[in-house]
């Protein structure tokens, strides 16, 4: 860890870690599509969004400490990402549902942070413009799948339903973030409802959190697939410490 980075404002640390882990974990999940996406254009699109998120993660984690140590040497319980981003890619509809829920949230969140004068404002002001394209991508695919064939409609609905219970955690307040969480949730719900209805889909009706999911990821409690994802993500660095190319 370089000395210049050793004393970040304590207020920003928990927040930078939480948002940095969200970006890092979702980046890795999207990266898993490289070479596997349904068409070449999507392979490229998902990898590009993964790269945007990786850039955000690097900036945020560098506010906390050494980015490589934080990404590759922490145990599962030390990660502070929401459980939504660690959910497996599933079929393409699941990835799009996860993208829709998360990119709308991230754009609204960064929008609020960019307007504040906090330590995260410079990154937020930059990233909000990138995330606008992620949201645009997710919205178009939600419309295309929802209002597509019977099969794509059913799969898109199933994906929205399956991930709905992870969306409540997005709006659990994070220490040090100057965010109006109620307004964030309202704005998110309005935007997501609009896209879902236009796509002839139904907004899931159940609760947005289970008893054990509300804020759990932010406290280091993760779902089973996350351990396997981390093992793959960290394996190379742990096996060959300090390797470079």
């Amino acid at each position: 860890m370089s000395p210049a980075r050793a004393t970040p404002a304590p207020l920003g640390t928990a927040a930078a870690l939480a948002l940095g882990d969200d970006a890092l974990v979702l980046s890795h999940r999207l990266g898993e599509w490289a070479g596997n996406a349904p068409v070449l254009e999507e392979d490229v699109a998902l990898a590009n969004m993964a790269l945007d998120l990786l850039g955000q993660a690097r900036t945020l984690l560098s506010l906390v400490g050494d980015e490589d140590e934080l990404a590759y040497l922490r145990e599962e319980r030390a990660f502070r990402n929401v459980q939504l981003v660690e959910q497996p890619n599933g079929d393409f509809a699941h990835t799009i549902a996860r993208q829709l829920y998360f990119s709308v949230y991230q754009q609204l969140l960064y929008g609020q942070l960019a307007a504040e004068d906090g330590p995260l404002a410079p990154l937020a002001a930059k990233a909000v413009k990138e995330v606008a394209y992620h949201r645009d991508h997710a919205e178009h695919w939600t419309l295309r799948l929802g209002d597509g064939t019977a099969e794509s409609h059913e799969r898109m609905q199933r994906a929205l339903d399956a991930l709905w219970r992870y969306t409540g955690e997005l709006f659990e307040p994070v220490d040090g973030l100057p965010v109006d969480w109620t307004a964030l949730h309202d704005g998110w719900l309005t935007a997501v409802t609009g896209v879902v209805e236009q796509a002839t889909l139904t907004l899931p009706g159940g609760p947005q959190s289970g008893a054990w999911t509300a804020g759990a990821g932010r406290q280091g409690i993760h779902t089973e697939p996350f351990g396997r994802m981390l093992a793959e993500m960290q394996h190379l660095h742990r096996s060959h410490p300090g390797a470079s190319w």
Binding site: E41, E42, V44, A45, N48, M49, L51, D52, E130, Y133, D136, H137, H140
Partner: peptide, 13 residues
């Protein structure tokens, strides 16, 4: 528009 993302993040196809 074919794709919002192209050979690099800054381009669309």
């Amino acid at each position: 528009l074919l794709s919002r993302f192209s050979s690099t993040a800054c381009k669309a196809l």
